[in-house]
Each structure stands twice: as C-alpha cells, then as structure tokens.
Amino acid sequence: MVKAVRIHAYGGPEQLRYEDIEIGAPGPGEALVRHRAIGLNFADTHNREGRYPLPSLPHVLGGEAAGVVEAIGPGVTEVKIGDRVAYAAGGPNFPPGAYAEARLFDASRLVLLPDEIDDITAAAILTKGLTAQYLLKSVYPVQAGDTIVVHAAAGGVGLLLSQWADHLGAQVIGVVGSPEKAELAKANGCQHVLISGREDIAQRVRTLTAGEGVPVVFDAVGRDTFEASLKCLRPRGTLVSFGTASGPVPPFDLFLLNKMGSLTITSAAFAWFVRSRAELLSRAADLFNVILTGAVKAAVHQRFALADAAEAHRALESRRTRGASVLIP
C-alpha cells in the first residue's frame, strides 16, 4: 500500500483525497518507481475537473515525477533497479497517476537522470521543459532575430520557454498578470514584459515591432488571450495554442484568419511530440543540455506536501504561484 491523491468524482480541489491505494508488482515492460518529487501542472486541474477526462474513476492525478526504480518486470531493459529516473505522462497509453508515493510505469517511457540534476528539479522541468523544447524546435522553429510573444511568461513553461528563446537569439515579449511576475519574467529571458489587464497587449506589441506584429505567439492561457494573440501576429503569422488556463477558446469564424493576414493556428499537444522512445530521449537530451550548460535555469518556486495537493491546486488556479511547483511525498 502507498499513499496517493486521487479523485472519486470530477470537481474542485475538495475532490482530492489523500488515501491508501494498492499498486502491486510490475508486470512485463513495467517498472516500479518510488517517487521523490512530483511535478504540479495546470493540466492536473483539467483532469480533476473532467475537461481532460481520466480513464476511469477513482483515479490518481498527476502527469510527471522523479524518483528511483525499486523493481522491474519481465523484459525490461531500459532501466535497472537503483536508477534515478523521471517521466512525463501523456496520451491514452500513459495516463496520469503521479500523485502517489510510488507507481508502476512503462519502462520505455522512463528517462535516466544526469547526476547533476536533482530529483526536485527533474520533477519540476520534464513536462514543462519538453513542452518548451517541442514548441521552439518543432511547432514553430524559432530563429535568431525573431521577435516572439509568450503568454504566462512567469509560469512554469513560460519561464523555460522565454529563457530558451532568448538563448536561441530571439527577442521575447512576455505577458504576465502582475508587476511581481513582470520582474520574474524580465530576469528570465524577456526583453519586454507587458501586464495583462493594464495595457492593450496587441497595441503594445505593434508598437514594439514598428507596426508589423510578430511571427509567432505562444499562448497557454486560451479564452482570455485568444483575440489579442491573433491581433499580435504579422501577416502569415502563427498562433501556437498549447493550453487553456482561462478556459477553452470559443468557436469562431475560420475566415477571420484570412482577413487578418492569412494567419495560422495550431493546437500543440504534448503526447504527439514524444510518440516514440527515440523522440522522447532526443528531446530530453536537448533539454538536459541547456540546463546543464546554464543556458536555461530551472527554479522551483513552490513546494507542497503531497497530502496538501488540494491547497496546491487552489494556489495554482488563483495564480498565486510563480514558475514551477512540486509535491513532496
């Protein structure tokens, strides 16, 4: 038996229950990972609410964690007992389940951790860092000299995305929700920082780009920023939507994209960019490289006990958090 946080019904943070569960022994291709740190992501709240439905109820939440392999099942060659590993769940074959002291996981989806990256950092960055990697390298390959807009620039993905884009030679316009978060964004790769609700974001972006607009906007906020994001784009620009923290984007007339300059919108989901183990390891190696060389710094700003997961969700949803957060079993 291990302690875990799971839900029995969809709803608010009050649905999170800290309770005992049975996990059993690893089967073929599986490893038993004893968690040392668990990542907290906004997608966890969507699972809790049912916006991203879980395979069944009750179900343990959580999409990423770091820890140590305690046992392996038949046929496992990717890891061995004692290895330090991390994982990022995603897609129907790798469901949530990280909010627990330990869990069984597909060994082919475990990433070996460099000695220089500690468990708390690994749990905080794997999903967020891989997201930043595929956004910048695959969804819209950012080049030196590009000017880009990053919404939620002081959030977990936003801080990594902004630093990495800056490292690639881009000019980053970050959008945040408060002056305190503006200072954090400025210290993490953003050359310009705009505060939502206090200024016309699209107009300011136009001013900063001599009226042209930007080639790409990375938007994890969704409903509240969608219109402004489109207005920030130059002709033939791309809106990359990779989250809906404020709610889903409502239906709109597709022909508006034509009228606004033949714009492109893409919805980039994590699972489709780490489909194979080879792709997962390649992207993880790129992430670890920029962390280990110091080009991108990963800071964990909040730590909560696993038993306090409900409070962690409340803090996340009220935008009281900055950057990355973890749960400690």
Rank of each mutant, 00 (worst) to 15 (best):
N41I: 00
L32I: 01
E64K: 04
G294C: 04
A202Y: 11
A4H: 05
A124C: 03
E101W: 02
W272E: 12
E14H: 12
A122Q: 09
A315Y: 08
S262D: 14
T209L: 10
E30M: 13
V274E: 10
D115F: 00
A187M: 08
V172G: 01
E14R: 14
A123L: 01
A310D: 14
A88N: 06
S282R: 15
V157N: 11
S229G: 09
K186Q: 14
G174T: 06
P74C: 04
L40D: 05
R234D: 02
M260K: 15
A31T: 03
L239S: 11
K3I: 01
S196L: 05
L208S: 12
G11I: 08
L161N: 06
A307N: 05
P179W: 02
V175E: 12
A65P: 05
V85P: 09
D146N: 06
A185L: 06
G211K: 11
A170Y: 00
K128W: 03
V175H: 13
G211C: 07
P96K: 06
L40C: 02
V60T: 13
V5Q: 08
A278F: 05
D83I: 00
Q163K: 04
P53K: 05
L257I: 07
D146Q: 00
D286H: 12
G247Q: 12
I328D: 06
S196W: 11
V172S: 01
S229K: 09
H313Q: 15
G145C: 00
E199P: 09
H301E: 13
G11S: 11
P179I: 01
R275I: 02
A123W: 04
G75M: 09
R17S: 13
V68Q: 11
L112G: 12
R277Q: 09
E116K: 15
E78Q: 15
T209D: 13
G243M: 04
V217D: 12
T127N: 13
E183A: 13
V69G: 09
S56V: 06
V240A: 04
G294D: 08
F42Q: 05
G189T: 03
T244I: 15
E199S: 12
V69Q: 11
V111Y: 09
T209W: 10
L256I: 04
P114E: 05
Q163A: 02
L112N: 12
I195C: 08
V214F: 05
F252A: 08
V290H: 12
E19L: 00
G211P: 07
I328W: 03
G211H: 10
L159E: 07
G237M: 07
D119A: 04
F218Y: 15
S196E: 14
A165D: 09
D286W: 10
Q171A: 07
A25E: 15
A310F: 04
R314Y: 02
R51A: 13
L135V: 01
R303L: 01
V175K: 13
V326L: 03
F252P: 07
G12C: 03
L239P: 10
E22V: 05
L254I: 14
L184N: 08
E49Y: 03
E317Q: 14
R275Q: 13
Q15N: 14
G213L: 08
A245V: 07
T207K: 15
P26F: 01
H8P: 03
H59S: 10
L130V: 00
F105C: 03
V5H: 07
P28Y: 04
S178C: 04
V149Q: 14
A98S: 15
V150G: 09
A102R: 09
L280E: 10
D119K: 00
L316E: 06
